[in-house]
């Protein structure tokens, strides 16, 4: 095992897959010599060069669209889109092409592509560089959507995503890049579609993913000192959702909080909450509680921004209320 940051772990997973399979290549803006906005791909470019880590012009639509075409002919492109906000320029190749080709061709075509992008706020980078729009993709049949929250999951999931024969949207959170945990030295994968219980607890199921995991764990720690035991479920994959793990936990605890940074309305929390209603209604002691980002674009000013992202305090308060039956 090696202690590493999530950024290093994802890099490591990418490099290992590129060594293992010569059809894997990276394509995106400023991924080569510049090394990527946070330096993730720099060392990979050093190892593999321009042929396997390809710098492109600023042309998101065509970068992703070219990924679709290359994947149809058997390559395994890993497309990097920097900030998730820019993916809005490339929705056609994702939603109308990649997600649909396999189905429309009666299974004759595969699109084994990974699209990596950065989500989340907290860096004062304002409304066009801070969004969490994962729900857009999770709404589309034919897309897999993953959002790892740890280094371990980052490496294991990038490997699974690359090996998958279908398009995988791979969401990385800016603030998780510097968080560290133990990562195995040998080859391993984390299955797509499988949630992970990051902390076992008997009182309340707290279901979350991506950038909110550290806050969920901090809240769980704080609450355990006052005798409330949170079970923290990290979804890891947002489509397909691992409803079995959610259901098993909620049936045990009888209480559920769903937490994410993206705005509340029509978010992943709404889906998870509905699933619980359908699959564990008789076990619930109280309605499902949702905690989510506020329904506004991200403001530049940091104190304003801090107000729109869920806090540990909010989770703690919600959990206390739920426990006390209020």
């Amino acid at each position: 095992m090696t202690m590493m940051t999530q950024l290093e772990a994802i890099r490591c997973g990418l490099s290992e897959e590129m060594r293992r399979d010569s059809s894997v290549f990276i394509i995106g803006e400023d991924v080569g010599l510049y090394g990527g906005v946070f330096g993730l791909t720099g060392p990979i470019w050093k190892e593999f060069g321009d042929d396997r880590v390809m710098d492109t012009p600023i042309s998101e639509l065509t970068i992703v669209g070219a990924g679709v075409g290359a994947a149809m002919l058997g390559l395994r492109p890993v497309v990097e889109i920097m900030f998730m906000d820019f993916i809005t320029l490339a929705m056609d190749p994702i939603v109308n092409q990649a997600a649909k080709l396999r189905y429309m061709t009666g299974g004759k075509v595969k699109v084994p592509m990974v699209i990596r992008m950065l989500s989340g706020g907290g860096l004062s980078v304002s409304a066009q560089h801070s969004q969490s729009i994962e729900a857009w993709f999770a709404h589309i049949p034919g897309l897999k959507v993953v959002a790892p929250a740890t280094a371990y999951d980052g490496k294991g999931l990038i490997k699974s995503a690359i090996r998958d024969d279908n398009t995988v949207i791979f969401i990385e959170h800016k603030l998780l890049y510097k968080t560290s945990d133990e990562v195995p030295d040998d080859d391993y994968t984390v299955p797509i579609g499988k949630a992970d219980i990051k902390r076992v607890g008997k009182d309340i199921s707290l279901i979350t993913y991506s950038g909110m995991l550290p806050k969920a764990l901090a809240a769980a720690h704080e609450l355990s000192e006052e005798g409330i035991e949170l079970e923290v479920i990290d979804l890891r994959t947002l489509r397909p959702l691992d409803s079995a793990t959610i259901m098993e936990s909620v049936r045990r605890t009888g209480k559920a909080i769903v937490l994410h940074e993206a705005p509340l309305s029509v978010g992943i929390g709404a889906e998870v909450s509905a699933l619980i209603m359908e699959g564990a209604f008789d076990y619930l002691d109280a309605p499902v509680v949702r905690i989510a980002g506020k329904e506004v674009p991200s403001p530049y000013n940091d104190t304003l921004e801090a107000q729109i992202i869920p806090t540990v305090e909010q989770i703690v308060t919600a959990a206390r209320k739920l426990r006390n039956g209020m």
């Binding site: 004062s124 304002s126 409304a127 403001p299 530049y300 000013n301 940091d302 304003l304």
Partner: peptide, 14 residues
Amino acid sequence: GRATGCCGGKGGSM
């Protein structure tokens, strides 16, 4: 990021 900024501190440099 001040209230007196041309966007009230909500836009910033970009």
